[in-house]
Design a binder for these strands. Structure first.
Lengths: 348, 348
DNA sequence: ACACGCGATGTTGACGTCAACATCGAACGC
DNA sequence: GCGTTCGATGTTGACGTCAACATCGCGTGT
């Protein structure tokens, strides 16, 4: 009864040969049935399928990958899933890849303490994926000392232009312009900015676009308050802003920091939007229920994910490279955190 | 110069044989170097490593998996990454797996429209992972019609007891008790509850534990307001609660719904925590910056992730099964959204 | 009746790796 | 000096799949 041989040895499942034997056909015919080829007699097919079912046969993807030279798998390099945007993009990437018949291999970049162990096992050091989507900022990639194998198809989701890879990202500049113009159009004299970390290209794009918009409108450019995407950093920045009675409009580089800003304003008793208007960036699910509901810039993460996968698969299958960067448009979502300034500015 | 053969054929990288030829050794010696075996002469090792570098050799994980009968890969079944808890757990799972030398294979369950396509490609239908961690609620699993292959090691992260698999999860009952008791200890007469969806076991545990705690303390059990984890559903429930002057304490089954409740209370002009105290569940990064900062139950997702991976790997490698469910303790985090009721109840 | 074509099925070998076994030479003990 | 041992290295074959090629039998046209 027992088929145990050595105690540690892995028990393998039935192979094509087993199915073939049971069905009384050759392995090749089983292969044809498994791959849904048309040139198999109906009766034979039924017999083979019955045998598969009886044995619980499942194709071995390793053998398939070895034979075909393809893994049907996409690696996704992520840092931490804590970031809202990364998570949403990953979700979309996973869905798009699955639909295209690819599997997602998560390649987490661990923090410094765990790194030594990491590298030894990193799947990037071996052939295991057909291509890679990079979901972390260029800066983090450098810091992690990750070396991408030559010839491996890569798509970068980041606004960085420094890498020689195809790029897909939300149109950061357009979004930041939308946010800034919305506030100026409401009549605010100028707009203050809580930025993302200086190492982030997306943050840089948003900051520069905010600044450019102000300059083009002839507005004074107030000093930037540096944040790091976290609500806490937004809160710190918000405390400074709340203490400054000149501030009537704030553009935070993401919704999380906007939340921190809101809290700081509330604590100081400054009313939003009556005293100060606030705009975020991302449109998290929560933002519609902040107090007050946050006006923000909606990023279409679904499109970003899908387009990245499409570009990568094109590269894998056809060897196409270096299209122009893809910039997915964003949209302004107006809620209750923005309003005209209480005391309208003097007309010029 | 050109090595192109057929236009579509996949270009394969150098194999051990290529390295062996260049280094003037046998393939087996290359294998020994690649696997860091000790019984290789130092000079030989150097020569081989030089050859590897020169050719850009990367081991082929498919061949390795085929040979060894192991994939060194863990499948993680997820529904959508939108949920905070799932994301945090996935993050922890990925880190733990990487450290243990396993790769994460994301297996997204797509929505109904995309399902037909999905199943055809689902990696569960073939051998590609050594084990699976289920990060979706039992209900969703059923609905998706997912059939887990017999004999595949599985760990479930859910409070459901209906499956015959090892289970790891936060101690939902303990957390809900903590939340409820905190409010009662502050002097509230009773605690209202905004629950998660009825299909969720976690939601069910929290609701039952809240009810039990109230009963044990001799408090009246108010009707449950059904939510579905989303901030919107919390908002809807919050509007009903805000309209009811009897309500002085609310326990929402997660932080997102608590956010919705807070918004509804603000809109109605009910002051938190003076008029109404609110407790959440999860401790998202944002919760500390809600207005007011939210008292909530901290879930240790890192432990949940790590313990799941450990249990699964033990099952994969040693064939161990069916330990008792692992319940990771939660912690109460007190912030500003809870306080004693404004008008203390009459002493009994 | 015979050559031919075509669809169904079988046979062979190679993908890259590594365990098991084989071999070879040097150091060592007596 | 000779058998023994041990460490370094080489050879062989199998893991499961599938493309390419081979074969077989049946129907068609003349």
């Amino acid at each position: 009864m027992s088929a145990e041989e050595s105690p540690v040895r892995r028990r393998r499942g039935p192979s094509m040969a087993d199915v073939a034997r049971l069905a009384g056909v050759s392995g090749q015919t089983v292969s044809r049935v498994a791959n849904d080829r048309h040139n198999v007699d109906a009766a034979t097919r039924d017999r083979v399928q019955a045998a598969m079912r009886e044995l619980g046969y499942r194709p071995n993807s390793a053998a398939r990958a070895l034979r075909n030279g393809q893994f049907r798998s996409i690696g996704v390099i992520v840092f931490e899933l804590s970031s809202f945007g990364t998570t949403r993009t990953l979700d979309a990437v996973a869905a798009a890849a699955t639909i295209s018949g690819y599997t997602i291999n998560l390649l987490p970049v661990l923090d410094v303490n765990q790194r030594a162990v990491t590298n030894a096992f990193s799947r990037l050091g071996e052939q295991a994926v057909d291509g890679v989507i990079i979901l972390i900022e260029a800066h983090t990639l450098d810091e992690a000392g990750i070396q991408l194998p030559e010839g491996l198809p890569v798509v970068v989701v980041d606004s960085s232009a420094r890498y020689d890879y195809p790029i897909v990202d939300s149109n950061q500049a357009q979004g930041a312009r939308l946010a800034t113009e919305h506030l100026l159009d409401l009549g605010h004299e100028t707009v203050w900015h809580v930025s993302g970390p200086p190492t982030s290209f997306a943050a840089d794009r948003r900051r520069r676009s905010w600044e450019l918009t102000l300059t083009q409108r002839g507005c004074e450019v107030p000093p930037v308050l540096d944040g790091d995407w976290t609500p806490s950093s937004g809160y710190e920045a918000g405390r400074k802003l709340a203490a400054n009675p000149d501030v009537t409009a704030v553009f935070a580089a993401n919704d999380q920091m906007a939340l921190g800003v809101l809290r700081a304003l509330h604590e100081r008793g400054r009313v939003v939007p009556d005293d100060v208007s606030v705009v975020g960036f991302d449109d998290m699910e929560e933002s519609a229920h902040f107090w007050p509901p946050l006006t923000t810039i909606l990023q279409n993460f679904t499109d970003v994910g899908r387009l990245s996968v499409d570009a990568l698969i094109r590269e894998i299958q056809a060897g196409e490279h270096h299209h122009d960067p893809v910039a997915v448009p964003t949209k302004l979502v107006v809620r209750s955190s923005t309003a005209p300034p209480r005391r309208p500015q003097l007309a010029g």
